[in-house]
Protein backbone atom coordinates (compact mmCIF):
# COMPACT_ATOMS: atom_id res chain seq x y z
CA UNK A 1 0.00 0.00 0.00
CA UNK A 2 1.40 3.34 -0.94
CA UNK A 3 1.51 5.98 1.68
CA UNK A 4 0.51 9.41 0.52
CA UNK A 5 1.63 12.38 2.49
CA UNK A 6 0.06 15.55 1.26
CA UNK A 7 2.05 18.75 1.36
CA UNK A 8 0.60 21.05 3.92
CA UNK A 9 0.90 24.75 3.49
CA UNK A 10 -0.28 27.45 5.85
CA UNK A 11 -3.56 28.99 4.75
CA UNK A 12 -2.20 32.51 4.95
CA UNK A 13 1.20 33.38 3.56
CA UNK A 14 1.20 36.89 4.97
CA UNK A 15 1.26 37.59 8.69
CA UNK A 16 -1.20 39.88 10.40
CA UNK A 17 1.39 42.64 10.71
CA UNK A 18 1.71 42.64 6.90
CA UNK A 19 5.12 40.94 6.82
CA UNK A 20 5.85 37.58 5.23
CA UNK A 21 6.24 34.29 7.07
CA UNK A 22 10.02 34.65 7.35
CA UNK A 23 9.70 38.23 8.60
CA UNK A 24 10.59 39.98 5.37
CA UNK A 25 8.82 43.01 3.96
CA UNK A 26 7.02 42.67 0.63
CA UNK A 27 9.94 43.87 -1.48
CA UNK A 28 12.85 42.57 0.62
CA UNK A 29 15.39 40.14 -0.76
CA UNK A 30 16.63 37.20 1.25
CA UNK A 31 20.21 37.56 2.57
CA UNK A 32 22.65 36.97 -0.30
CA UNK A 33 26.29 35.98 -0.07
CA UNK A 34 28.46 35.57 -3.16
CA UNK A 35 32.02 34.44 -3.65
CA UNK A 36 34.17 33.83 -6.73
CA UNK A 37 37.10 31.53 -7.47
CA UNK A 38 36.03 28.74 -5.15
CA UNK A 39 36.91 25.73 -7.36
CA UNK A 40 40.61 25.47 -8.11
CA UNK A 41 40.52 23.24 -11.17
CA UNK A 42 37.83 25.21 -13.00
CA UNK A 43 38.65 28.10 -15.34
CA UNK A 44 36.19 30.21 -13.41
CA UNK A 45 33.85 29.46 -10.53
CA UNK A 46 31.44 31.06 -8.11
CA UNK A 47 29.34 30.21 -5.09
CA UNK A 48 26.12 31.78 -3.92
CA UNK A 49 24.02 31.55 -0.79
CA UNK A 50 20.64 33.06 -1.50
CA UNK A 51 18.51 32.53 1.57
CA UNK A 52 18.60 28.76 2.02
CA UNK A 53 19.79 28.09 -1.54
CA UNK A 54 23.39 27.00 -1.82
CA UNK A 55 24.72 26.76 -5.37
CA UNK A 56 28.11 26.21 -7.00
CA UNK A 57 28.87 27.11 -10.61
CA UNK A 58 32.01 26.31 -12.56
CA UNK A 59 32.98 27.35 -16.08
CA UNK A 60 35.28 25.58 -18.52
CA UNK A 61 36.26 26.78 -21.96
CA UNK A 62 36.68 27.54 -24.72
CA UNK A 63 37.37 23.91 -25.45
CA UNK A 64 36.67 21.26 -28.04
CA UNK A 65 33.10 20.04 -28.31
CA UNK A 66 32.34 16.44 -27.43
CA UNK A 67 30.35 14.85 -29.07
CA UNK A 68 31.89 16.44 -32.13
CA UNK A 69 28.67 16.70 -34.16
CA UNK A 70 27.34 19.40 -31.83
CA UNK A 71 30.07 21.84 -32.89
CA UNK A 72 28.98 24.76 -35.05
CA UNK A 73 31.37 25.83 -37.80
CA UNK A 74 30.51 29.53 -37.54
CA UNK A 75 30.18 30.07 -33.80
CA UNK A 76 30.82 28.58 -30.42
CA UNK A 77 28.15 26.98 -28.28
CA UNK A 78 27.24 27.48 -24.64
CA UNK A 79 26.21 24.40 -22.71
CA UNK A 80 24.72 24.54 -19.26
CA UNK A 81 24.38 21.55 -16.97
CA UNK A 82 22.02 22.35 -14.11
CA UNK A 83 21.90 19.52 -11.57
CA UNK A 84 20.34 19.16 -8.16
CA UNK A 85 21.96 17.08 -5.47
CA UNK A 86 19.88 14.16 -4.18
CA UNK A 87 19.83 15.70 -0.71
CA UNK A 88 19.04 19.23 -1.85
CA UNK A 89 15.27 18.88 -1.39
CA UNK A 90 13.04 17.41 1.33
CA UNK A 91 12.22 14.20 -0.48
CA UNK A 92 15.15 12.44 -2.10
CA UNK A 93 15.60 13.61 -5.66
CA UNK A 94 16.49 10.97 -8.20
CA UNK A 95 19.97 11.73 -9.47
CA UNK A 96 19.25 11.29 -13.19
CA UNK A 97 18.57 14.57 -14.99
CA UNK A 98 14.85 14.88 -15.46
CA UNK A 99 12.53 17.06 -17.50
CA UNK A 100 12.77 19.98 -15.11
CA UNK A 101 16.57 20.00 -15.04
CA UNK A 102 16.87 19.86 -18.81
CA UNK A 103 14.42 22.74 -19.12
CA UNK A 104 16.25 24.91 -16.63
CA UNK A 105 19.60 24.15 -18.28
CA UNK A 106 18.19 25.27 -21.62
CA UNK A 107 16.57 28.36 -20.15
CA UNK A 108 19.79 29.47 -18.44
CA UNK A 109 21.88 28.84 -21.55
CA UNK A 110 19.50 30.90 -23.70
CA UNK A 111 19.51 33.63 -21.08
CA UNK A 112 23.31 33.91 -20.97
CA UNK A 113 24.03 33.48 -24.69
CA UNK A 114 23.27 37.10 -25.74
CA UNK A 115 25.99 38.53 -23.50
CA UNK A 116 28.77 36.31 -24.86
CA UNK A 117 30.77 36.84 -28.07
CA UNK A 118 30.24 33.28 -29.26
CA UNK A 119 30.87 34.19 -32.89
CA UNK A 120 34.55 34.77 -32.03
CA UNK A 121 35.13 31.15 -31.00
CA UNK A 122 33.88 28.92 -33.84
CA UNK A 123 33.90 25.18 -33.28
CA UNK A 124 34.30 25.42 -29.51
CA UNK A 125 32.14 25.17 -26.46
CA UNK A 126 31.83 26.94 -23.15
CA UNK A 127 30.49 24.73 -20.43
CA UNK A 128 28.83 25.80 -17.20
CA UNK A 129 28.20 23.22 -14.50
CA UNK A 130 25.69 24.30 -11.86
CA UNK A 131 25.34 22.17 -8.76
CA UNK A 132 22.46 22.92 -6.41
CA UNK A 133 23.53 21.74 -2.97
CA UNK A 134 20.54 23.09 -1.09
CA UNK A 135 17.28 24.28 -2.64
CA UNK A 136 14.56 26.52 -1.25
CA UNK A 137 12.72 28.26 -4.07
CA UNK A 138 14.17 30.42 -6.81
CA UNK A 139 17.08 28.18 -7.77
CA UNK A 140 16.84 29.09 -11.44
CA UNK A 141 17.27 32.77 -10.61
CA UNK A 142 20.14 32.13 -8.23
CA UNK A 143 21.73 29.76 -10.77
CA UNK A 144 21.59 32.38 -13.54
CA UNK A 145 23.13 34.98 -11.24
CA UNK A 146 25.95 32.70 -10.14
CA UNK A 147 26.60 31.37 -13.66
CA UNK A 148 27.12 34.92 -14.95
CA UNK A 149 29.51 35.54 -12.07
CA UNK A 150 31.50 32.39 -12.86
CA UNK A 151 31.72 33.37 -16.55
CA UNK A 152 33.09 36.79 -15.61
CA UNK A 153 35.55 35.21 -13.19
CA UNK A 154 36.88 32.96 -15.97
CA UNK A 155 37.86 36.04 -17.96
CA UNK A 156 35.52 35.26 -20.84
CA UNK A 157 34.59 38.45 -22.73
CA UNK A 158 31.02 39.45 -21.91
CA UNK A 159 28.85 42.41 -22.80
CA UNK A 160 27.66 42.62 -19.22
CA UNK A 161 26.74 40.55 -16.20
CA UNK A 162 23.30 38.99 -15.90
CA UNK A 163 21.23 39.28 -12.73
CA UNK A 164 18.07 37.41 -11.98
CA UNK A 165 15.31 37.44 -9.38
CA UNK A 166 11.72 36.24 -9.09
CA UNK A 167 8.62 38.31 -8.44
CA UNK A 168 5.17 36.99 -7.76
CA UNK A 169 1.82 37.30 -6.08
CA UNK A 170 0.87 35.89 -2.69
CA UNK A 171 -2.51 36.44 -1.00
CA UNK A 172 -3.29 39.19 -3.50
CA UNK A 173 -0.09 41.12 -2.76
CA UNK A 174 2.86 41.52 -5.11
CA UNK A 175 6.12 40.35 -3.57
CA UNK A 176 9.79 40.12 -4.56
CA UNK A 177 12.04 37.07 -4.24
CA UNK A 178 9.72 34.17 -3.45
CA UNK A 179 10.88 31.53 -1.00
CA UNK A 180 10.10 27.83 -1.45
CA UNK A 181 6.77 27.87 0.35
CA UNK A 182 5.57 31.06 -1.36
CA UNK A 183 6.57 29.55 -4.70
CA UNK A 184 4.42 26.45 -4.15
CA UNK A 185 1.43 27.91 -2.37
CA UNK A 186 1.37 31.40 -3.87
CA UNK A 187 -0.84 32.69 -6.68
CA UNK A 188 1.81 33.38 -9.28
CA UNK A 189 5.53 33.32 -9.87
CA UNK A 190 7.62 35.15 -12.46
CA UNK A 191 11.41 34.75 -12.74
CA UNK A 192 13.06 37.72 -14.49
CA UNK A 193 16.68 38.05 -15.65
CA UNK A 194 18.24 41.22 -16.99
CA UNK A 195 21.42 41.96 -18.92
CA UNK A 196 22.89 45.35 -18.12
CA UNK A 197 24.35 45.92 -21.60
CA UNK A 198 21.24 47.68 -22.75
CA UNK A 199 18.90 47.05 -19.82
CA UNK A 200 17.23 44.20 -21.67
CA UNK A 201 15.17 41.38 -20.20
CA UNK A 202 16.86 38.10 -21.04
CA UNK A 203 14.64 35.62 -19.18
CA UNK A 204 10.95 35.85 -18.41
CA UNK A 205 8.85 32.91 -17.33
CA UNK A 206 5.41 33.04 -15.82
CA UNK A 207 3.18 30.74 -13.87
CA UNK A 208 -0.21 31.59 -12.30
CA UNK A 209 -2.58 34.48 -12.72
CA UNK A 210 -1.99 38.22 -12.85
CA UNK A 211 -3.64 41.11 -14.62
CA UNK A 212 -1.90 43.58 -16.92
CA UNK A 213 -1.51 46.24 -14.24
CA UNK A 214 0.03 43.83 -11.77
CA UNK A 215 2.36 42.54 -14.45
CA UNK A 216 3.72 46.03 -15.18
CA UNK A 217 4.10 46.76 -11.50
CA UNK A 218 5.89 43.49 -10.77
CA UNK A 219 8.34 44.12 -13.62
CA UNK A 220 9.23 47.45 -12.03
CA UNK A 221 9.65 45.70 -8.70
CA UNK A 222 11.92 43.13 -10.32
CA UNK A 223 14.08 45.85 -11.83
CA UNK A 224 14.56 47.53 -8.45
CA UNK A 225 15.53 44.23 -6.85
CA UNK A 226 17.86 43.32 -9.72
CA UNK A 227 19.80 46.54 -9.33
CA UNK A 228 20.66 45.46 -5.79
CA UNK A 229 21.66 42.00 -6.97
CA UNK A 230 23.85 43.55 -9.68
CA UNK A 231 25.70 45.70 -7.16
CA UNK A 232 26.32 42.61 -5.02
CA UNK A 233 27.65 40.74 -8.06
CA UNK A 234 30.10 43.53 -8.91
CA UNK A 235 31.25 43.69 -5.31
CA UNK A 236 31.80 39.93 -5.14
CA UNK A 237 33.71 39.91 -8.42
CA UNK A 238 36.11 42.66 -7.40
CA UNK A 239 36.49 41.71 -3.74
CA UNK A 240 39.18 39.11 -4.43
CA UNK A 241 41.46 41.65 -6.11
CA UNK A 242 40.70 44.58 -3.83
CA UNK A 243 41.53 42.49 -0.75
CA UNK A 244 45.00 41.75 -2.17
CA UNK A 245 45.52 45.43 -3.07
CA UNK A 246 44.58 46.56 0.42
CA UNK A 247 46.54 43.84 2.18
CA UNK A 248 49.84 45.26 0.97
Amino acid sequence: MTLLIQDEYPKKLLREDGLRLDGRGLTDLRPIKMEVDVIKNADGSAYIEWGNNKIFASVYGPREVHPHHLAKPDRGILRVFYRMATYSVFERKRPAPGRREKEISLVISECLEPVLFLELYPGTSFEIFIEVIDADGGTRCASTTVAALALADAGIPMRSLVSSCAVGKVDGQLITDLSGIEDKAGDSDMPVAMTWFNDEISLLQFDGKMNQEEMDKSLDMAKDALENVYQMQLEALKKKYIQIQEGI
Binding site: D153, P157, R159, Y241
Partner: peptide, 30 residues
Protein backbone atom coordinates in the same frame (compact mmCIF):
# COMPACT_ATOMS: atom_id res chain seq x y z
CA UNK B 1 27.26 50.03 -26.20
CA UNK B 2 24.27 49.65 -28.51
CA UNK B 3 23.25 53.30 -28.41
CA UNK B 4 26.90 54.26 -28.98
CA UNK B 5 26.95 56.74 -26.13
CA UNK B 6 29.14 54.87 -23.62
CA UNK B 7 32.33 52.83 -23.65
CA UNK B 8 32.02 49.67 -21.57
CA UNK B 9 34.41 46.98 -20.45
CA UNK B 10 33.99 43.37 -21.60
CA UNK B 11 36.36 41.64 -19.18
CA UNK B 12 37.47 41.89 -15.59
CA UNK B 13 40.69 43.88 -15.52
CA UNK B 14 42.52 47.12 -14.87
CA UNK B 15 41.47 50.32 -16.62
CA UNK B 16 44.14 51.95 -18.75
CA UNK B 17 43.97 55.25 -20.63
CA UNK B 18 46.58 55.49 -23.36
CA UNK B 19 46.44 58.67 -25.47
CA UNK B 20 42.81 58.59 -26.60
CA UNK B 21 42.36 54.86 -26.28
CA UNK B 22 40.67 53.23 -23.32
CA UNK B 23 41.94 49.72 -22.69
CA UNK B 24 41.26 47.07 -20.08
CA UNK B 25 44.24 44.94 -19.02
CA UNK B 26 42.78 41.48 -18.31
CA UNK B 27 43.28 39.84 -14.92
CA UNK B 28 41.93 36.43 -15.99
CA UNK B 29 41.60 34.76 -19.33
CA UNK B 30 42.57 31.99 -21.68
Amino acid sequence: NKKRDKIISVIIGLKQIKKNYINVIPLRGF
